[in-house]
């Protein structure tokens, strides 16, 4: 399907939704707490000009990206090792199988007592949640490598490190990116949730929304939600762009 048409349809759909919403708000068929798109845009502009917004976005991004970076480093490394070495794989299997279906958000109160209501706690909870999709995808990707590649590599005298770096890693890369995309989405979810639960003074988009909620300013709430949505959208597109650049040889693009 051609991308241009899809993009046009997307724009038209969004505009239609906004238009209907705006009309409902103007004629007051909506309860006033649902605000209106124009009011939300206005408060987004106000927040932008206010100056605090960059601090909010900065500290939120710092938490989520630190967590994501940890996931990339630890998840991919462990995933490749667990897929390549059978013993490492069997070592990690029970941990992953038992911990994966658990809602990691439940660990937040415990981590809060151990590390305080701090960035450490938030980054840790983001890491714990986003680690598993990345790890599982990487491990399964390594496991599904064609044995022929490995044999030919060994035949040409590659050391284990070379084998991992030159064959296993590139072949697994599409799967790794699939896992990372899921992880990135979870990162932003956990960023918001860890900020809204461990209520504290400070910066962060979650606090912004929480404070607007307490003050009953729904337009600011919508604005905060819109900013989080935008960040999630931008970083997802960024990851897809990186994927397109790195994996130019991969036929079935996401």
């Amino acid at each position: 399907m051609d991308n241009k048409l899809l993009r046009m349809i997307a724009v038209i759909e969004l505009l239609a939704i906004f238009l209907i919403w705006e009309l409902l708000a103007v004629f007051q068929w909506f309860p006033t707490y649902l605000s209106s798109p124009l009011a939300i845009f206005k408060s987004m502009g106000e927040l932008w000009l206010d100056g605090d917004l960059l601090n909010h976005i900065g500290s939120s991004l710092f938490r989520s990206l630190m967590g994501f970076l940890l996931v990339v480093i630890v998840g991919v490394t462990l995933g490749i090792l667990a897929g390549y070495y059978r013993r490492v794989g069997t070592f990690f299997d029970p941990i992953v199988n038992t911990l994966n279906p658990i809602p990691k958000i439940a660990l937040l109160p415990i981590l809060m007592v151990w590390f305080g209501i701090s960035d450490t706690t938030r980054i840790l909870i983001i890491f714990l949640t986003a680690f598993f999709p990345c790890f599982v995808a990487t491990r399964d990707g390594v496991k599904s490598i064609k044995q022929v590649y490995l044999w030919s590599g060994q035949n040409m005298g590659a050391s284990t490190f070379q084998l991992l770096r030159k064959i296993v890693f590139p072949v697994t890369l599409p799967k790794i990116f699939d896992g990372l995309r899921v992880s990135l989405g979870l990162t932003f979810v956990m960023m918001f949730s860890s900020e809204i639960i461990g209520a504290a003074n400070g910066f962060g988009l979650g606090f912004l929304i929480l404070n607007a909620d307490l003050g009953g300013r729904t337009d600011y709430m919508f604005a905060g939600v819109a900013f989080i949505g935008l960040l999630g959208f931008i970083f997802d597109k960024l990851l897809l762009t990186i994927r397109g650049k790195v994996l130019w040889w991969d036929v079935n693009k996401a």
């Binding site: 990135l184 960023m191 809204i196 939600v225 989080i228 949505g229």
Partner: peptide, 9 residues
């Protein structure tokens, strides 16, 4: 890609 949890409030 949008974190839909943010809609909760």
């Amino acid at each position: 890609p949008i974190p839909r949890v943010a809609l909760y409030p």
